[in-house]
């Protein structure tokens, strides 16, 4: 049976993890923001910024890790903007997020077009290459599936560990979780709600930008208009599916990656009968289904979407 063959091929799992990587960054980023009580719909635009800045930094000679750093800083900058609008100013998180997405996207496109006014094919960079780890990469099946990914995939996995360590094992994590549930209690402890929330949004936005950077610096080696194509919104759905837990976020992203990799292979099998667009719709429909499945029992951070003003309940 050829479908089973697909599931048993290392190639398939390698693709699933590759597709999952930007989503791992994105879902983690959205999770950190929402755990602190702020929905960040800027994610779609911050992906674009990360993709553009990371790529352009490398193209200008910053080196691959320099590009990663610059992408993260650019993400954090737009996070700061969203943070200022939604936290001390207490403006609508929905509208501000959409504004950030539009702003970040148009700044990126404008910058790219201004730097490269007349290119027919987008210039390429020397992207991250799959690692070749002695022994591990040569293991049968697991080797090609897991240990021949690029460094950025391992960075994403490390971030899962880091975010769950910080959230659950440190006083800072406790404060972040508390500020998303009951900000007045945090204030009563003498901690600053504003600083915690803005900090969390900046950190989360930096993670989102890394998701974008992965696309231009690891999955591909160039920047294209419209390359993010709703990946940010998918992350916003997946974070609900993951019930705001880093471990489940990883699982959700991997599951999603596996489905997506499967549909691509399915498309090769039956592509002659069924139009390709049907397959391309699947990721979006899948995200809606994932959201609907858990929506009723979703345990939203209690202060999500609620601005906090000092001395006011």
């Amino acid at each position: 049976m050829e479908y089973i063959d697909i599931l048993l091929s290392a190639n398939f799992w390698a693709a699933a993890i590759r597709i999952a990587t930007p989503l791992i960054f994105g879902v983690l980023g959205a999770l950190v923001c929402e755990r602190a009580g702020v929905l960040n719909l800027g994610i779609e635009g911050i992906f674009v910024v990360g993709a553009m800045c990371g790529w352009m930094a490398v193209w200008l000679g910053a080196g691959l890790w320099g590009g990663v750093l610059i992408a993260a800083l650019a993400g954090a900058f737009f996070g700061l903007l969203h943070g200022i609008l939604t936290v001390p100013l207490g403006l609508s998180q929905h509208v501000s997020g959409l504004g950030i997405t539009m702003f970040a996207t148009s700044v990126s496109y404008f910058t790219y077009r201004t730097a490269l006014p007349k290119v027919s094919s987008p210039p390429r960079i020397e992207a991250f290459q799959p690692l070749d780890i002695p022994v591990l990469s040569d293991l049968p099946f697991i080797g090609p599936a897991l240990f021949q990914q690029t460094s950025m995939t391992f960075l994403a996995l490390a971030m899962v560990l880091l975010v769950s360590y910080v959230l659950y094992r440190t006083p800072l994590g406790l404060a972040i979780r508390a500020v998303g549930d009951n900000p007045s209690a945090v204030e009563a402890q003498g901690l600053s709600v504003f600083a915690l929330r803005i900090g969390a949004i900046m950190a989360g936005s930096a993670l989102m930008a890394l998701g974008g950077a992965f696309l231009t610096m690891s999955a591909f080696d160039a920047f294209f208009f419209g390359m993010i194509n709703g990946r940010g919104w998918i992350c916003i759905a997946l974070v609900v599916f993951a019930s705001w837990r880093p471990g489940k976020a990883l699982l959700g992203a991997l599951l999603f990656g596996a489905f997506d990799a499967f549909q691509i292979r399915l498309q090769n099998e039956v592509g002659a009968v069924i139009p390709s667009q049907v397959f391309l719709m699947i990721p979006y429909l899948l995200s809606i289904v994932a959201l609907v499945l858990v929506a009723r029992k979703a345990d939203y951070p209690r202060a999500l979407l609620q601005p906090y003003f000092r001395g006011q309940r």
């Binding site: 919104w233 609900v240 391309l280 719709m281 809606i288």
Partner: peptide, 30 residues
């Protein structure tokens, strides 16, 4: 989906935009 199942309409409406665009492309090529 919002009133019956409590699914956030921001995300569902955004995601449906991509589905619809693909559907339109499919109809226009088919």
């Amino acid at each position: 989906l919002k009133t019956r199942l409590g699914a956030d309409e921001v995300v569902t409406t955004l995601l449906l935009n991509f589905v619809v665009l693909l559907f339109v492309q499919m109809m226009l090529e088919g």
